[in-house]
Amino acid sequence: MTILLQGVLDAVSIGGLFALMALGIGLIFGIMRLINFAHGELITIGGYAMVVLADAPPLATAILTLLFVILLALVMERLAFRPLRQASLPTLLIASFAVSYLLQNVLLLIFGGNTKGVNFLPSLSQPIEFSGLRITYLQTVIIVVTIVLLVAVTLFLKRTRFGIQMRAAAEDFRMAQLVGIGATAVAVTAFATSGFLASVVSLLYITQIGVILPQTGLQPALFGFVATVLGGLGSLLGAAVGGFVIGCLAVVLQIVLPLELRLFRDAFLFAILFAVLLIRPQGFIVVRWARERV
């Protein structure tokens, strides 16, 4: 029973992180029809910002990391994706792949290829024990932050002017423009929101793993992309659910797989997800516009 509860706790905290990850990716896809491969590099760069700011007070580190990652997301939008707004889907896909590779190698140029330790708020990693369950402060923070952010993003999208504009643009970009919604404003808001989500994931995820490399963001981003597909491309709720499911599945596999097979966890994970997609290729939640129109 305790093992089961422990597993549930671990699964919820990892699942929450992947849900935030997938939400950031899904938001950009929903509005721009862009799978942003460089989302993972936003996470990585947040981690390096924490390395650079290691000596600053924790609050300052956190705020500056948030701001820097958001700024970077906006720069990305301006330099790479705004000129490509009329481009076809495959072109956008390849472009974001190029941006991701570009950022990885810029990080390699600046910081080199060696692992760097991140020791942000070490007290967060202290475990709390009650009735045989172990949970770190960090896991608690992750669970709380995930819930708060999911609610906040939902409210932002449903209640605020920018959120409503973004949803309108996601539904029908040209129609939204015709009723006077600025395409650039929508794109900027979307990238800023996505950058904000990435920076939060960065703070939590990098603090948890404690080390950083130029390729660190790749794996969680890949999980995030697959999560958006699993949840149904274009659906934000789907993305969050997909991310949550993948995170939980990863934890479950980690527990049930025998030791010698654990190295192959990701292969098993993707095999399971492919099997699910074989049965339901459109994902969990199908949004209306995602169906092909003639």
């Binding site: 799978i35 896909l93 794996q219 992309f225 697959v226 491309l233 993707f270 492919f274 995602a290």
Partner: peptide
């Protein structure tokens, strides 16, 4: 079975797994 963009993401997942 997946639509174009989803299939592309799938190919990347295949690469990572293999």
């Amino acid at each position: 079975r997946l639509a174009g963009v989803s299939a592309s993401i799938g190919t990347f997942a295949v690469l990572a797994a293999i």
